[in-house]
Amino acid sequence: MEVIVKQQKATARQVLADVYEEINWAYLAKNYFGKSRSWLYHKFSGMNNGVTDDFSDVDRERLKNSLQDIAGRIMQAAERL
């Protein structure tokens, strides 16, 4: 009998652990999601009022794109120095 092990997807917070403290999440929540920082913090914590809350696939993609945009803008600013 073959045993199938379902691989769990890492949480966004786990993936971003090494840069989490360097990012202004309130700015990102407002300017890229049109949401409050508490909305984003609930997503990162995985809980909202005792209910499991995680990023949807669409929101994960938006988070990825927003981080890439910010990274690109930082690189451009650094190049101008």
Rank of each mutant, 00 (worst) to 15 (best):
1 M>F: 05
1 M>S: 15
1 M>C: 10
2 E>D: 06
2 E>R: 09
2 E>V: 11
3 V>T: 08
5 V>F: 10
5 V>M: 03
5 V>S: 05
5 V>C: 00
5 V>W: 02
6 K>H: 06
7 Q>K: 15
8 Q>A: 15
8 Q>M: 11
9 K>A: 14
10 A>W: 07
13 R>P: 01
13 R>N: 03
13 R>S: 06
13 R>C: 03
16 L>H: 07
18 D>Y: 07
18 D>W: 09
19 V>N: 08
19 V>K: 09
19 V>P: 08
20 Y>H: 14
20 Y>K: 14
21 E>I: 01
21 E>Q: 14
22 E>M: 05
25 W>P: 07
25 W>D: 10
27 Y>S: 05
28 L>Y: 09
30 K>M: 15
31 N>Y: 11
32 Y>H: 15
32 Y>F: 15
33 F>T: 06
34 G>L: 13
34 G>P: 15
35 K>I: 09
35 K>H: 10
36 S>G: 11
37 R>C: 05
38 S>D: 14
38 S>E: 13
39 W>M: 09
40 L>K: 04
41 Y>Q: 04
41 Y>K: 02
42 H>R: 13
42 H>Q: 11
42 H>G: 00
42 H>W: 12
43 K>Q: 12
43 K>A: 06
44 F>N: 02
44 F>M: 04
45 S>M: 13
46 G>W: 03
47 M>Q: 10
47 M>K: 10
48 N>E: 09
48 N>M: 05
51 V>K: 12
52 T>Y: 08
52 T>A: 12
52 T>F: 07
52 T>M: 03
53 D>E: 14
53 D>Q: 13
54 D>M: 02
54 D>S: 12
54 D>F: 06
56 S>P: 04
56 S>W: 03
57 D>I: 05
57 D>F: 01
57 D>Q: 07
58 V>T: 13
58 V>Q: 09
58 V>P: 00
59 D>N: 08
59 D>E: 15
60 R>G: 04
61 E>D: 12
61 E>A: 11
62 R>C: 03
62 R>W: 00
63 L>K: 04
63 L>I: 04
64 K>M: 03
64 K>T: 01
64 K>G: 00
67 L>A: 01
68 Q>F: 02
68 Q>R: 11
68 Q>V: 06
68 Q>C: 04
69 D>Q: 05
70 I>P: 00
71 A>Y: 07
71 A>P: 01
71 A>E: 08
72 G>K: 07
72 G>Q: 04
73 R>A: 08
73 R>C: 09
73 R>I: 03
74 I>R: 11
75 M>P: 01
76 Q>E: 15
77 A>R: 13
78 A>Q: 15
78 A>F: 10
79 E>N: 04
79 E>S: 02
80 R>W: 01
80 R>C: 03
80 R>Y: 04
80 R>Q: 10
